[in-house]
């Protein structure tokens, strides 16, 4: 039960929503599918005066643009994203990442934009605070950090657990951001600040309008893995997304994009690992060397009961497997 009084406005267009946000200031918050926001309202992590609802806006179906990119409306529900023919065919990794989110019911409501803009999570944060952890932590504007008492007030080690963001980063996607000043376009990774306190780089009245994914290059392949305990209806312990491109020789790597989510305040791109792969032959030995180094470079935060040690071990194995799978797909041309 949500024990708050708030107003509700239903926007007819995204422009209108952005305009209302600009006018209403901090007291307003957009509501897309609500699957992330409503639990936060319940826990009183946010207490907006007005919710600006986006559910009255019909999303455009995913489409191919002139340059061969695929443009996906931010309001697309995850269930349609996961099953859209164009997306399944051209961007199977994106479809799989959408299918990894929550459960059927959640995916029917959840939107792509909401997924990217979801709050960071922490066991001490995602609950009501009437008698548990009643003292507000830094993220709630207070004066402590419950799991990490030695953190200072600039530091919140909550983690960003989107399943889709790593896939988009690995696919080299860009985002259309709609704001008072018009449109701007940023790389998917740039949506995130890396601060657990303020995870998104969006301005107050800015909204994600669309995601634009370039066509996967020739001889490329992908690997995606969400580590979980029970394999569904669960946020990831770590989310790994990889795209690899093979050179014309069909053996050495000429492009790599690796992103890992759920283990840091933002989905992280692993550039050092990418560098270690580009120009090299993608044999088992190399992958077995690169993956553990990459996990270490990631420096995972312990979260949701998982120790740093275990996250390192888990990411090392599944990153290697994802890389091997991507290399195999790139070699065989199979999706």
């Amino acid at each position: 039960m949500i024990l708050l009084d708030f107003g509700y406005e239903r926007a007819a267009t995204l422009q209108q929503a952005a305009a209302w946000l600009a006018r209403l200031g901090d007291g307003a918050h957009v509501l897309a599918g609500g699957t992330d926001l409503l639990p936060s309202l319940r826990a009183e992590l946010v207490s907006p005066g007005v919710l600006v609802g986006l559910s009255g806006i019909e999303p455009e179906p995913p489409r191919l643009t002139a340059d061969g990119s695929i443009r996906i409306d931010a309001l697309t529900r995850l269930s349609s994203l996961a099953h859209a023919g164009l997306v399944r065919e051209k961007l199977p990794m994106l479809a799989d990442s959408a299918l990894a989110v929550g459960s059927n019911q959640i995916r029917e409501m959840a939107t792509l934009g909401g997924n990217l803009c979801q709050e960071t999570r922490c066991l001490y944060l995602n609950q009501r605070h009437d008698y548990q952890f009643a003292a507000p932590c830094f993220k709630r504007g207070g004066d402590c950090c419950h799991p990490f008492p030695r953190n200072d007030r600039q530091t919140c080690w909550s983690v960003h657990m989107s399943d889709i963001a790593p896939a988009l980063i690995a696919l080299g996607a860009e985002l259309e951001i709609l704001g008072g000043a018009g449109m701007r376009r940023i790389g998917a990774a740039e949506l995130y600040t890396g601060s657990g306190l303020q995870p998104l780089s969006l301005g107050r009245a800015e909204l994600v309008r669309a995601v634009i994914v370039p066509p996967p290059p020739p001889r490329s392949g992908w690997g995606f893995h969400k580590s979980t305990v029970r394999g569904g209806l669960e946020f990831g312990m770590a989310v790994i997304a990889v795209s690899l491109q093979l050179a014309e020789d069909g053996a050495s790597c000429c492009g790599a994009r690796i992103a890992v989510g759920a283990v840091r305040e933002r989905p992280l791109r692993l550039e050092s690992a990418e560098r270690a792969l580009v120009g090299a032959r993608l044999d088992d030995e190399r992958l077995a060397r690169v993956a553990p180094d990459a996990a270490k470079a990631l420096n995972p935060l312990p979260h949701h009961g998982f120790t740093r040690r275990h996250l390192l071990d888990n990411v090392a194995v599944y990153l290697r497997r994802a890389l091997a799978q991507a290399a195999e797909r790139a070699r065989t041309g199979r999706a």
């Binding site: 066991l123 001490y124 995602n126 609950q127 548990q132 952890f133 305990v229 029970r230 209806l233 669960e234 946020f235 949701h304 009961g305």
Partner: peptide, 11 residues
């Protein structure tokens, strides 16, 4: 204090 008082985190 209970850290995972919900169906998502109590698996």
């Amino acid at each position: 204090y209970t850290l995972n008082p919900n169906w998502l985190d109590y698996r």
